[in-house]
């Protein structure tokens, strides 16, 4: 079986190819395998698709399209198992770290402890990395936890912050601007420039939050 039999593989502009139309877990396996090949400049996941960028000096668009479409099904296997193993993230919900927990508690009419309980019992999964460098956009939060974005985004959200917005949960690997309500801080280092993969989380990764007390 070829990639083009299982997925929609189409040109996007003169230097990109978009792959879509199958189960997201399979797409993640494909993109992860494509990243290991030196043929492509970038392989970026969206929520429901994956876009591969190529060098038009190296490949004409039809050549790149043919090359990708013709890849065989071994692209679908391997690489997905490790994502299935949930990664535990230690989170501090102290007042100093959970900048908006009090406001969220009022907005949702839930106690702070109830909110924390719903966060740590959630089976989360990274749907996409993006929005800001290293930001992990995760689904799996209880429906009761949906809040809008902050009316005024923060200029500087501390690194490691755990936020919620629009029924999703997200982590800020780096400090930077952001508009999600901050409910805690991930103590595990989400970013380490010395690591081969500087960012701890990746697309498709299953995640569980563990409450820790930080003095």
């Amino acid at each position: 079986m070829k990639l083009a039999d299982r997925f929609m593989v189409e040109l996007l502009g003169d230097d990109c190819i978009r792959i879509s139309g199958a189960a997201v877990a399979e797409l993640r396996a494909v993109s992860s395998n494509l990243r290991n090949s030196e043929d492509w400049l970038a392989v970026v996941d969206g929520i429901e698709d994956c876009v591969v960028q190529f060098d038009p000096v190296k490949y004409l668009p039809d050549e790149a399209l043919g090359l990708l479409s013709g890849l065989t099904e071994d692209m679908l296997v391997a690489g997905s198992e490790e994502l299935e193993e949930p990664l535990d993230l230690a989170v501090s919900f102290s007042q100093a770290d959970a900048l908006d927990l009090k406001d969220i508690s009022a907005a949702l009419s839930l106690s702070e402890d109830e909110i924390i309980q719903r966060l740590v019992s959630a089976e989360l999964r990274v749907d996409m990395m993006g929005f800001t460098p290293g930001f992990a956009y995760m689904s799996g939060l209880d429906d009761s936890m949906s809040v809008p974005r902050l009316k005024t985004p923060r200029q500087n959200v501390p690194a490691g912050s755990l936020g919620i917005a629009g029924g999703k949960c997200g982590t800020y690997a780096l400090a930077g601007p952001g508009g999600w309500s901050i409910v805690g801080r991930v103590v595990s280092p989400l970013f380490d420039p010395e690591r081969e993969n500087p960012f701890l989380l990746k697309n498709g990764q299953r995640v569980r939050l563990k409450r820790v007390d930080v003095r």
Binding site: A42, M129, F135
Partner: peptide
């Protein structure tokens, strides 16, 4: 910056 676009790095 290259090779890190899938982590959201522009």
């Amino acid at each position: 910056r290259s090779g890190l676009r899938h982590f959201g790095v522009p």
